[in-house]
Design a protein around this nucleic acid. Structure first.
Lengths: 206, 206, 206, 206
DNA sequence: CATGAATGAGGTTTCATTCAT
DNA sequence: CATGAATGAAACCTCATTCAT
């Protein structure tokens, strides 16, 4: 079992952080180890010392970002809150998360374009999406109380939520150009968040 | 303007088709010209003859796929159709388009991850999104007739539509894994299409 | 199917010759492509153009040398020659071959140390050892005529012949040192050849 | 003279054993220190602690194996034994030795391919080949008694013996393939041993 | 005695591109 | 119009070795 000294751990972390940034920016194929080690101010050999290969460095980077999903605990999700507030908070929280974690967004998208190969190889232990579990509770409660329509399937609702928000990042450039609207503009995103919340709320409420 | 003989034109087209396929699959950085020319059964020199560089080959591939958007004419968009039918047809048409054009989906996503650099460089003559224009008409008409809520902004509605559908492709692998649901399964996509149409319809109708 | 121009063929041959020399001298692992291309005055990229990999370059080198065995046709092997002359010519021919083809000797030995992996991978079509076939005839005829003992198995005889000669090359340095006798000295080899012929002749004759 | 604690000595020995095995298998250039230390479950730094360099580790490995020759004492070599029995025992003993010490065989061959460089550098104190000395006695006695031909030179006889046996190992793979006969098969080796003894006996006896 | 950290040189291979015919 | 030859830079990776603790 390998162990690391404090100093080594710091170097390793610097390497990983740099890798996350560059892989997010340019993807796996578009990032060279030379760039990474230069930015991380470390010897190239160390990549192999700590990670074994570029592939595994990428996987660790992906995995580290992926775990950030767990921080999106959506604390606001209380079954007894009024449905309007819940949806609004939820959408707002998700937008904030994407905005605050651009590397997460990019790495997830690169990974999907790569058919999820690395995630498969890693067998990352996904923590069953806490957000999803809370959403199920809320929807269930809402349907019992009659505030949410019976047809709503919480799984598709979750996808809808993600899709409505994610699209502003995954298709930002093509959509901005097509609509003549800068989707990176905070004011636009503010409106978007409201529009999404409005759409979803009206879309699910009874 | 360059012209090509029939034989040359055929080779050029074979090259472009292969490029579209491979760039869609592996992105710009992940695709080598060697692969392309091997698959297209053409001499490498020809890439430079026809396109000048790898970059421009990529741009042509992207541009060719991008133009497919124009085929998504959404013929069903008639201002006088009942709003329910319009939404249903629209969502269904968009899903079908994405399903039928996986290379379009991938190239668009790669391009967005690359910050739209190539599209910018190309100054692609975007056909002002016919879908968008029709959608504006429909929404306008609906709002006049009182079947669509006044707050609905057709631009955000379009993004919502795209996001709701696109997410099944852009995040297919991570979502499939997180939800334990195969988003590539036609039956699942069928349900998804209905859920999306239902959500949007209820989300916009007055 | 790849074809080569005359000029290309020359470069390829220069590369192969250099490879034979260096692989024979230092083995596969001990030879770097940089050395090879420097000596062959060629660009490193060409190795991959012509051979695909270092491994395949090695295999071609091995294969080319291996085929030299076919030139050892032992024209002297006539069934009706007196047995003494046959053995003498045979041993002398084999010694001469080994002496004239040091690269053959080395490559064969490296290959055996590598457990014949490359030969296996190549499935080299061995021409059924013409030497062996002639030897069978001679031994057969000799046994019929009563000049060669009946127990002699021509297969083991061949191995014996090879072993008696090859050992002067495969174990030259350790034996020279152990016996205090320079086995590379032409005069010593002359004696060796006679001793081997004498030994084999007396070993097989009736 | 360096001394080592029992624990250190054990580690050193483990390192040496592993080195012998791997150098025998892949040669000097084909073996990396990383492999060695991984297999020996030891820290890489220890190689330098105990041996100073890869080169010297190799030399120690070679030297250790080389000394095994001394164990080939050929106890059976008694001047008064009947010549037939002596030859038979000798050949059998040599075959057994080679069979029992594959690492010896390989290291000797690698070393010869490397022109005996390491042995030279080491100035290994070669124990004057006890086998050789006994053989001289036997041959001398035989020639006096008239059971062995006068022309026999015991040095060439020794080489012949070694060559006849060694060839089954040094050329195993190429010969097996050329003859369509598995030279690693114990039954084949049994026959080989008899054929060699027969050949040598008839080759030297008066 | 022993460990993990670190290094610089060099290994094989792949890249996009240009040349010559 | 089309082909094979050729290139230099840079890719990923491995090497034997040294350092600091």
């Amino acid at each position: 079992m390998k162990t690391f000294t404090a100093k080594g751990e710091k170097a390793r972390q610097r390497l990983l952080d740099t890798a996350i940034r560059l892989f997010a920016e340019n993807g796996f194929a578009g990032t060279s180890l030379d760039e990474v080690v230069t930015d991380a101010q470390i010897n190239k050999r160390m990549v192999y010392h700590y990670f074994g290969s570029k592939e595994r460095l990428y996987q660790e980077a992906l995995s580290a970002e992926y775990r950030k999903l767990e921080t999106l605990e959506a604390k606001t999700l209380l079954p007894d809150d009024p449905i309007g507030k819940v949806v609004e908070d939820l959408v707002s929280a998700y937008f904030s998360f994407l905005q605050a974690n651009p590397e997460f967004v990019h790495l997830i998208l690169w990974e999907n374009l790569n058919k999820g190969r690395s995630l498969d190889a890693m067998e990352v232990q996904l923590s069953k999406s806490p957000l999803m579990e809370r959403l199920v509770e809320v929807v269930c409660a809402g349907q019992k109380k009659g505030t949410i329509r019976k047809e709503i399937d919480s799984r598709f609702l979750l996808i809808s939520l993600i899709g409505n928000c994610m699209v502003y990042y995954s298709n930002r450039f093509t959509l901005s150009r097509a609509l003549g609207l800068d989707l990176a503009d905070p004011k636009v995103l503010e409106c978007a968040s409201k529009a999404v919340a409005d759409m979803i709320l009206n879309g699910i409420k009874a």
